[in-house]
Computed example of a mutant assay.
Amino acid sequence: MKVKFVNLDDKIKEGSEPTYADVIPGGKSVEEIVFENKKDSRLEVYINRLSRTQREIAKLLANGYKPNEIQSILGLTSKQYFDNLTEMRNPENTNILKGWIR
């Protein structure tokens, strides 16, 4: 049996808009939480753990930009973009938000 590993931000079908993250039911994404309620001290701690680039990525995602648009705006390669996303979603960073994210 072959197993295909995919990134949640990968498109389901080549040339289609929906990503795996778009169709998987669950709680809120990290990006939605970060910019929904900045006043919570846990969010402030999480935001302060992010690099400037990661904060910009989260802000653009929360505003509805697609990965390819974000890469273009920030001048990132696909690898740089996904490396930043992976770090943003790293359990060491997100454990403070436990119970809030999927």
Rank of each mutant, 00 (worst) to 15 (best):
R55F: 02
D22A: 06
E44C: 05
D10H: 06
G27Y: 01
G27L: 03
G27I: 00
I57H: 04
L60Q: 03
N63G: 14
R42K: 12
M1F: 10
P67Q: 02
W100D: 04
N48Y: 05
R55W: 02
R55D: 01
G15M: 00
K13A: 11
E69L: 08
D10G: 05
Y20R: 08
I73C: 03
G26V: 02
G27A: 02
V34D: 00
L85F: 15
M88L: 06
E69G: 02
R102G: 09
R49K: 13
N63F: 07
E31P: 02
R89A: 12
E14I: 12
V34L: 09
E92L: 10
K59F: 11
V6Q: 05
A58F: 11
R55P: 00
K4H: 11
T86S: 09
S51Y: 04
K39L: 13
R55S: 01
L97E: 04
V30R: 03
S41L: 09
T86N: 13
A21L: 15
N68F: 10
R42C: 01
N90I: 05
K59E: 15
G75P: 12
R102E: 12
F5C: 12
Q54C: 01
N7C: 11
S78F: 15
T94A: 02
P67V: 01
K4Q: 11
Q80A: 11
K11Y: 14
I33W: 03
K28Q: 07
G15D: 04
V23E: 05
P91M: 06
L50Y: 03
S78G: 07
P67S: 00
I96N: 04
W100L: 12
I47K: 13
K38E: 14
Q54N: 05
D83H: 06
K38M: 10
R49H: 03
M88H: 10
I70F: 02
